[in-house]
C-alpha cells in the first residue's frame, strides 16, 4: 500500500543524498512537491501517480545541486575577493612603514592566491556545461584573466617599479575578470536547464 508521507520522507532523503544538504532549499522544494501533489489529487488521480509526476517535474537532485552550488560558490568567491582587497590594503600599509624586505614575497603570495579564483569559479560550470560553447567561452575568460594576473606577478618580481604596483595590477585584473566570468556564469545558470529534457 502506497504511503504518501513515507514516500515524501524517502524523496527528501534522496535529494539530501544527491547533494542538496542545506535544509532551507529542501524545505522549499518539499513545500512545492506537496503543493503539486495536492493540486493533482483534486483532479482525481491516485496519490502514487500524483507523487511520481510531481517528483519528475521537480527534477533530479544532481542537476539542482549544480545550480545551487553556483550561487553558493559566487558568495564564497566574493568573500575571497574582499579578503584579497583587505590583504592588499595591509600590504600597502606595510609599504608605507618601509617593511620592504618582506614586501615582495608577500605580494607574490597574494598574487598566487588571486590566481586560484578564476579556475575555481569555472570549476562547477565545467561539470554541467561539458564541451558546450558556453564552457569554451568561460575557459577563454579564465585563461585571459590568468595571463593578466601572471603579468602582475612578473611586474612584482622583475619590474624596477614598486612591487605593490604589480600587485595592484593583478588585483584589478582579477576583479575585472571575476566580474566578467560571473556575468557569463549568470547567463548559464538557467539556460538549457530551466527547461526539462534539454
Amino acid at each position: 500500500m502506497f504511503n504518501l508521507e513515507q514516500a515524501i520522507v524517502a524523496w527528501r532523503q534522496q535529494m539530501s543524498a544527491g547533494g542538496i544538504k542545506t535544509p532551507e532549499p529542501l524545505d522549499e522544494l518539499e513545500s512545492h512537491l506537496r503543493e503539486d501533489i495536492e493540486e493533482q489529487l483534486r483532479s482525481g488521480i491516485t496519490a502514487q501517480q500524483a507523487f511520481a509526476s510531481a517528483v519528475q517535474r521537480i527534477g533530479q537532485a544532481s542537476a539542482l545541486k549544480l545550480e545551487f552550488e553556483k550561487i553558493g560558490q559566487t558568495k564564497l568567491l566574493l568573500r575571497f575577493a574582499y579578503l584579497s582587497i583587505t590583504l592588499l590594503a595591509v600590504l600597502i600599509a606595510a609599504a608605507t612603514v618601509h617593511l620592504n624586505d618582506a614586501l615582495q614575497p608577500l605580494c607574490l603570495a597574494e598574487g598566487l592566491l588571486l590566481s586560484l579564483i578564476l579556475p575555481d569559479m569555472a570549476r562547477t560550470s565545467a561539470q554541467s556545461l561539458k564541451d558546450s560553447e558556453d564552457h569554451k567561452s568561460l575557459l577563454r575568460t579564465v585563461w585571459i584573466g590568468q595571463i593578466f594576473i601572471a603579468l602582475g606577478g612578473a611586474l612584482i618580481i622583475c619590474s624596477p617599479l614598486h612591487p605593490i604596483l604589480g600587485l595592484v595590477f593583478a588585483v584589478i585584473s582579477c576583479v575585472l575578470f571575476t566580474r566578467k566570468l560571473r556575468r557569463q556564469m549568470r547567463a548559464t545558470i538557467h539556460p538549457a536547464r530551466l527547461v526539462m529534457g534539454s
Partner: peptide
C-alpha cells in the same frame, strides 16, 4: 512557457 519546476528555485535564490 513551462519551466522545470525545481530549477526555478536556484534562479529565485540567485
Amino acid at each position: 512557457l513551462q519551466w522545470t519546476d525545481g530549477m526555478l528555485y536556484p534562479v529565485l535564490h540567485r
